[in-house]
Design a protein around this nucleic acid. Structure first.
Lengths: 138, 138
DNA sequence: CTTGACCCTGTAGTTGCTACAGGGTGCATA
DNA sequence: TATGCACCCTGTAGCAACTACAGGGTCAAG
């Protein structure tokens, strides 16, 4: 019924330092302490930390996790805000995918152009180097 | 022929603080100074900073940029190392794309399941919350 | 009664910048 | 000449989201 921080960490796949970090930034409340000053957690904290971890796994930044947590605390509230948060986050993820996909094309084009040889002839270095203003081989 | 740090920044799309930061971490050499202790750059530095910026735009982390720079300094060296760096980076980018694509599916599935109503019925919150061990509405 | 696994606090490091604070320089204008 | 303004200088602290110590204390087992 009561867990140490290490048990809580194991149960949620979270490092002990991370749990203490979440406490420090106010994402987790300060837990009770044992006589030996060890943190002591119950089922509620386990639930809360699991929630946090799932949201983080889905890529929600801590600020949004915080928001989701307080939204989930008031079960009578309209779910539209939650929806909007998730939608924003999805848009962000999609933006990143687009960026990375463009990057991938550039990188593989670069790699395709490489035909071995020395750095002097390397297309990759060439592509990175600034546009030659005149004839310069330095 | 000689630029101030601001001009160099404008020419390469780099903030002044970032240039000083690159100098601090040794990515750019300490430049000459004017009588008034202003940094003074020439064409070589402009080229080097452009290189850095392009590599950064392609998502290379600074450590790899450093490596690419020293590789590009020796034009007689075999280009295979450059190739390997780029290939590693491409692999990394592809890994991220895969991760984000999985994330996108999860998020849009979550969003599709939301039918409005209150937070109490919200599928998104429900998906984040830990698996109900027994009957608990708290 | 000692070993070892765990826990505690506090601080500093990571990556790649960005943003001050508190001052100096250099040029144009009143 | 003064004074204003844009720019430069150094040094430090902040962002996200942890991670990794150092230097201790606690607790159960053997």
């Amino acid at each position: 019924m009561a867990f140490t921080i290490g048990e809580l960490g194991k149960a949620t796949g979270t490092k002990v330092e991370t749990i203490r970090y979440y406490e420090r930034i106010g994402l987790l409340a300060k837990p009770e302490r044992t006589s030996g000053n060890y943190r002591s957690y119950g089922k509620a904290e386990l639930g809360r930390l699991s929630f946090i971890r799932r949201a983080r796994d889905l890529g929600f930044p801590l600020g949004q996790v915080q928001a989701l947590l307080s939204l989930s605390d008031d079960r009578t509230r309209d779910c539209a805000t939650v929806d909007a948060l998730a939608r924003d986050h999805l848009a962000e993820v999609e933006r990143k995918i687009v960026d990375l996909t463009a990057l991938r094309s550039e990188l593989s084009a670069l790699l395709d152009s490489c035909e071995g040889g020395t750095v002097g002839d390397c297309r990759i270095i060439e592509a990175l180097a600034p546009p030659a203003t005149s004839g310069e081989t330095q």
